[in-house]
Design a protein around this nucleic acid. Structure first.
Lengths: 361, 361
DNA sequence: TTGTACGCGTTATCAA
DNA sequence: TTGATAACGCGTACAA
């Protein structure tokens, strides 16, 4: 076998502190102190060590360090999946915030499966992570595996989706407020019969969005009409189907608050297919600020979920818990305020000439 | 401070092999053998150990194991960022494939910054990963940091974006073929003047897509007209601007192959704004199969990048390298075939009645 | 200021 | 089949 010019060059074992110590004729302790900026170390010795470390491109072995100290600089993340719009953004926020704090993240997907989620937990524990960030799977009902984390003294922070109980640390979006703001906005635009595309009510996010919708109606002195609430799986098709039903009513709605952008899109498309004008005949509001909401015509009014902030906040909370180091800590829930983004699909009233659309990004 | 009902329960230290050994009155070696399914272990002893391990919910300390064995079950991933459409999908594919092979992933973002990318490499090395998967940042020109990985004897696989040189392991999309297929399709639909929204030519993906476009024209015996090639940053705005210029030409194009979906969208919107019919007056093809391409009217013909397959293939290749364990291995490039998705924006000819749109998903 | 010695949890080697 | 021991690389109490 002819040796390739750039074939596998002899695999250097990583250089350790012992190697440096031998080279300099000092003890490993000295090396350790020089590298970790310890107080008792001669400045010239320190320089010598640092120089040699650089020369040999010394990289501390984090495994060894973690083993010795019992704590790593790794954070575990469990998300249902890394796809779509929301989770990648939150993970992005988490990774960035963690990195700035000197931590790295190890990511797991539960694929919406409790069993997988349990395995993920085991794995993160055995990887000696310093803390765990979780958005629970849809199939999660019991939470014994999360207790395992806490019984190890490891901090645990939920984001977006949590388990029942108020003794957990969590960062969530105020979905209630989102539903409330969006509905109130539709009413302010002159809507008098606002329908609602609701999601599965066993998920708190959809339940809360619906409650916000209901309360906005109530505060406006308008009756809630169950005929104008459709319970769906939040797909585009479901939105279109509901729109079809509603628009066939003798007294059809003049506004729709959909708990998700895809269903809002379905409503929009069905309305247009029937020749209704949006927003004049039917004003529409969605939820999530999906990418496509600025692309449709008209653009879709929606609620931004503050994905990156959620990631950042979750990391901040987790780091606080890590630094508290097991000291008594009253569980805290951080609630992020959603941002209503008013766009073409709901804007019926004239706006000031200099600002035809607010927050059109 | 009144003790809360469910406050921090005494943090159990994780149970170690030594604990099990003490409890059973055997040596740690025996425990180790029982747990790792070693050949020389009595079946009844093995059962006893496994039972106790389960009872105490023993989790092996992967750090210790990795330290001892010099190899962990972690794969390092470096991506420019975990946002948008492409990278989350690839990462999803990677994580899933890795998990099925018993590996977990630690994710880093370079934020398109070489310096950050270098830090990421250092970090992954010090975390003792078993291998590294990289999609290089746009600002990466020299590749010394990648050599560091290889000089440690660690396998390295690039995906989507690679560094120059043919002695690397990589999984890429055949962008050339994507450009070729899309352009050929436009020509087959009757276009005779096909324009091209090109991306930055220092990025190989855009260069290759452009070359595919050029060759498709050439094979069709049509001249390439530099006036019909626009070099842009691939944004929606850039697409719209180019469309405006092109449509003002005395002899405007009747088809556009855009090297990205956002610019294709810009072209589409500008064409519609000017009252041109798409695809009758102007047929349009994009690239990437972004979510919104099935939402626009008409839907946008595009090229799918096989994101998940790319992640899977990259992991497979990396695992092969890991298992080769430093043995001579001729660097391999895996090239995935893109998939042309024909949709409304380019379909001018009548289709068979039973299948009005192919691959409309 | 520097060095010695031990332990973190696991596994490989050798001996019994 | 089982056990004793050393080693992986690092950090730290203690001694010099």
């Amino acid at each position: 076998m002819a040796p390739r010019k750039k074939s596998v060059s002899a695999a250097h074992a990583p250089v350790s502190m012992a190697d440096l110590a031998r080279e300099l004729g000092v003890s490993m302790t000295t090396i350790s102190r020089a590298l970790s900026d310890h107080y008792s170390i001669g400045p010239e010795m320190k320089q010598k060590v640092l120089k040699l470390a650089k020369k040999y491109n010394y990289q501390p072995n984090r495994m060894a360090s973690a083993l010795r100290k019992g704590k790593s600089k790794l954070l575990g993340i469990i998300v249902p999946y890394i796809e779509g719009h929301f989770f990648p953004k939150v993970v992005h926020g988490i990774e960035t915030a963690a990195r700035h704090a000197g931590y790295n993240v190890i990511i797991c997907q539960s694929s919406e499966d409790v069993a997988q989620e349990r395995r993920n937990i085991e794995l993160l524990l055995s990887a000696q992570v310093a803390g765990v960030l979780v958005s629970v799977s849809r199939t999660t009902t019991d939470s014994a595996h999360f207790d395992k984390v806490r019984s190890r003294g490891l901090p645990l922070v939920f984001f977006d989706r949590l388990i029942a109980g108020d003794d957990v640390n969590a960062v969530v979006l105020n979905d209630y407020e989102g539903g409330y703001l969006s509905t109130r906005h539709l009413l302010a635009q002159g809507c008098r019969r606002v329908a609602h595309v609701a999601g599965p009510q066993n998920l708190s996010i959809y339940k809360n969005r619906r409650q916000g919708y209901l309360d906005a109606l109530r505060y406006a002195g308008l009756p809630a009409d169950e005929a104008l609430i459709g319970y769906t799986d939040m797909t585009q098709a479901a939105g279109a189907e509901l729109a079809q039903q509603w628009l066939a009513l003798p007294h059809p709605p003049d506004g729709v608050f959909a708990a998700g952008d895809y269903s809002a899109l379905g409503v929009l498309q069905e309305a247009e297919r029937q020749g209704r004008r949006v927003p004049a005949d039917l004003a529409i509001g969605g939820f999530s600020n999906e990418t496509f909401t600025v692309i449709t015509k008209p653009t879709i009014t929606t609620v931004d979920q503050r994905c990156e902030e959620m990631g950042q906040a979750a990391v901040r909370l987790l780091l606080e818990l890590i630094e508290a180091n097991g000291a008594p800590f009253t569980p805290r829930q951080i609630v992020l305020g959603p941002e209503l983004l008013v766009r073409g699909s709901s804007l019926r009233l004239q706006q000031p000439a200099d600002k035809p659309k607010s927050a059109a990004k």
